[in-house]
C-alpha cells in the first residue's frame, strides 16, 4: 500500500467563466518511507496539492488516499496520522518554545514525553532556548521548532510545504539532513520546494509546472534523460553575451545559470570552435567555454519548453 496515492486530481479556482486551473489531472504515488519531492516554481500548484492531501481543501475531481485512507471520506483518520508544516508555517510568537510544542502535542491528543524520542535529535538543538518566546528565535531555529511541532504526534506521513523557503544555506543543509534521519524512522515525507538543487536530495521527484506534472522519476534518471550536450559560457559582458547567444543561428536554448550561461545547440557538428568564432566576431573577450553537466534545473527548463510546444 502506497503512503500517498493521487489519481487524476483536478482543482480549479476562480469563477466558472474564467477558471484558473491549479491542478490539472495530477497523479502520483509515494511509497512508504520515501522522501518525495514536488519541484516547481511559485504558482505551479504545489500548495493546492498539499492542502488537498492534508484534508484542508476539496478537489473538483479525482481521488487521493493518504496511508490508505480517502482524503474526503476518511479525513478524520488522516488527521490523526499526518504532520503538516504549511509554507506559511507559524508558531505562536507570544508562547515559549516549550509551550508551542506542548500546544501542538495537546491538540493531537498526545504529550511531549510520549514521542520525545522522535524529535529528540532536533529538539536538543533548540532546548537551551525552551523558555524563550518563539517570536524571538532565529529563522533556522523557528524552522526546527516548526518541524518538531509537526512531528510531535509521530505522524506516519509528513507534509512539508516549502520548508526551506527563506532559510539560510546552512540551515537548509541541516534541514535536509534531518529529513534523511526521519526517513530512517519509516516516515514517508512529501516535500515541496522551488529550489532545484534540493531536488537531488530526494528519492524521487515530481516536476510540476502550471498544475501539470511534467515528469516523475528519480533525480538521477531525470538527469540521464537529458541527452543533449550542454555548454557553459561566460565572458566579460554577461548581459550582451546572453543576448548574442540567443540570437545565434545554431542556438536551441540559452539562459542565465549562476555565473555562467547555459547553452544548448541545435546542431552539435560545429562544436566549440564555431561558437568561439561567433563570439570573437562580436568582440567578446575573456570568453570561457566548456562542457557542462546538466542538473535538474536544466531538465526542468527543457521539459518546460517541451510542454509549451
Amino acid at each position: 500500500m502506497p503512503s500517498i496515492a493521487v489519481e487524476n486530481i483536478i482543482k480549479k479556482y476562480g469563477s466558472k467563466k474564467e477558471p484558473v486551473t491549479a491542478l490539472d489531472d495530477v497523479s502520483l504515488e509515494v511509497s512508504k518511507g520515501e522522501l518525495f519531492g514536488v519541484i516547481g516554481p511559485d504558482g505551479a500548484g504545489k500548495t493546492s496539492l498539499f492542502r488537498i492531501l492534508t484534508t484542508l481543501l476539496l478537489a473538483d475531481s479525482g481521488t487521493a488516499t493518504v496511508d490508505g485512507f480517502d482524503v474526503v471520506k476518511q479525513y478524520k483518520e488522516i488527521r490523526n496520522r499526518i504532520g503538516y508544516m504549511p509554507g506559511k508555517f507559524s508558531l505562536y510568537q507570544d508562547l515559549t518554545v516549550e509551550e508551542n510544542l506542548r500546544f501542538f502535542a495537546t491538540i493531537f491528543n498526545t504529550s511531549i514525553q510520549e514521542n520525545y524520542e522522535l524529535i529528540k535529535e532536533i529538539y536538543v538543538q533548540i532546548e537551551p532556548f525552551k523558555d524563550r518566546r518563539a517570536g524571538k528565535l532565529s529563522g533556522g531555529m523557528k524552522q526546527k521548532l516548526a518541524l518538531c511541532c509537526a512531528l510531535i504526534h509521530r505522524p506516519s506521513v509528513l507534509f512539508l510545504d516549502e520548508p526551506t523557503t527563506g532559510v539560510d544555506a546552512v540551515s537548509r543543509k541541516e534541514f535536509w539532513e534531518m529529513l534523511k534521519a526521519l526517513k530512517q524512522q519509516g516516515i514517508s515525507i512529501l516535500v515541496s520546494t522551488p529550489y532545484m538543487d534540493e531536488a537531488e536530495l530526494c528519492d524521487r521527484v515530481a516536476l510540476i509546472q502550471s498544475g501539470k506534472i511534467m515528469s516523475i522519476d528519480m533525480p538521477q534518471h531525470i538527469i540521464q534523460k537529458f541527452t543533449k550536450t550542454m555548454w557553459s559560457v561566460r565572458s566579460a559582458e554577461m548581459v550582451r553575451l546572453l543576448n548574442d547567444l540567443q540570437h545565434y543561428s545554431n542556438t536551441e536554448k540559452c539562459y542565465a545559470f549562476g555565473e555562467f550561461h547555459h547553452l544548448v545547440l541545435k546542431n552539435e557538428s560545429g562544436g566549440k570552435d564555431e561558437i568561439l568564432q561567433y563570439l570573437q566576431h562580436l568582440a567578446h573577450h575573456e570568453i570561457e567555454l566548456h562542457l557542462a553537466q546538466p542538473n535538474i534545473e536544466d531538465c526542468f527548463i527543457e521539459l518546460m519548453g517541451n510542454n509549451k510546444s
Partner: peptide, 13 residues
C-alpha cells in the same frame, strides 16, 4: 492571519 489555524485544522481536535 498568522496561519496557526491551518495547523489546528489538520489536527484531530
Amino acid at each position: 492571519e498568522i496561519g496557526t489555524i491551518e495547523q489546528i485544522n489538520v489536527s484531530p481536535i
